Simulated scan of single mutants.
Amino acid sequence: MNIPLEHILLLSAVLFSIGVLAVITKRHAVVVLMGIELIFNAANLNLVAFSRHDPQLLQGQLFSLFVIVIAAAEAAVALAIVLRVYQHFKTANLSEITSQD
C-alpha cells in the first residue's frame, strides 16, 4: 500500500498546527512541552516522507533519528526545569510565575 506524499504532508501540517496552537494558547508548562514535541514529530514525519521517495538515500531517516534523540533529551531537561519551577513557585501555570527578589 502506497500512501501519497500529499496525504503525509497534510497530516504533518495538521500536527504542526496543533503543536503551534498548544504552544501559543496554553498556560500549563507541560502542555506547552507537549506542543513542542508535536512540532518535532511533524518535522520528523516530513523528513521520513521525503526520504521514502528516494530509497537510495537514508539521510532523512537518519536525521529524523537524530531529532528524536535530541527531543528526548530536551524533554528530560524541560521536565526537570518544570519540577524545579513547581517546587519554587508552587504552580506550573506559566502566567502565574513571576520573578521574586
Rank of each mutant, 00 (worst) to 15 (best):
M1W: 04
N2R: 07
N2V: 14
I3E: 10
P4D: 12
E6F: 03
L9M: 14
L10H: 06
S12C: 13
A13N: 08
A13T: 11
F16N: 04
S17G: 12
I18K: 04
I18L: 15
I18M: 10
A22W: 07
A22P: 00
A22N: 14
T25C: 11
R27D: 15
H28M: 13
H28P: 05
V30W: 10
V30L: 15
V32T: 07
V32I: 15
L33I: 06
G35I: 14
I36E: 09
I36Y: 02
E37G: 03
F40A: 15
F40T: 14
A43M: 14
A43I: 15
N44G: 09
A49H: 05
F50D: 01
F50E: 07
D54K: 00
D54M: 10
P55H: 02
Q56T: 09
L57Y: 06
G60H: 09
G60A: 03
G60N: 01
F63C: 10
F63Y: 07
S64D: 09
L65Q: 06
F66L: 15
V67G: 02
I68F: 03
I68N: 01
I68L: 12
E74W: 00
E74S: 00
A75P: 00
A76P: 01
V77N: 04
L79C: 06
I81P: 00
V82E: 12
L83M: 11
V85K: 05
Y86V: 12
F89Y: 14
K90D: 08
T91F: 02
T91C: 01
N93K: 04
L94W: 02
L94I: 14
S95V: 10
E96A: 14
I97M: 05
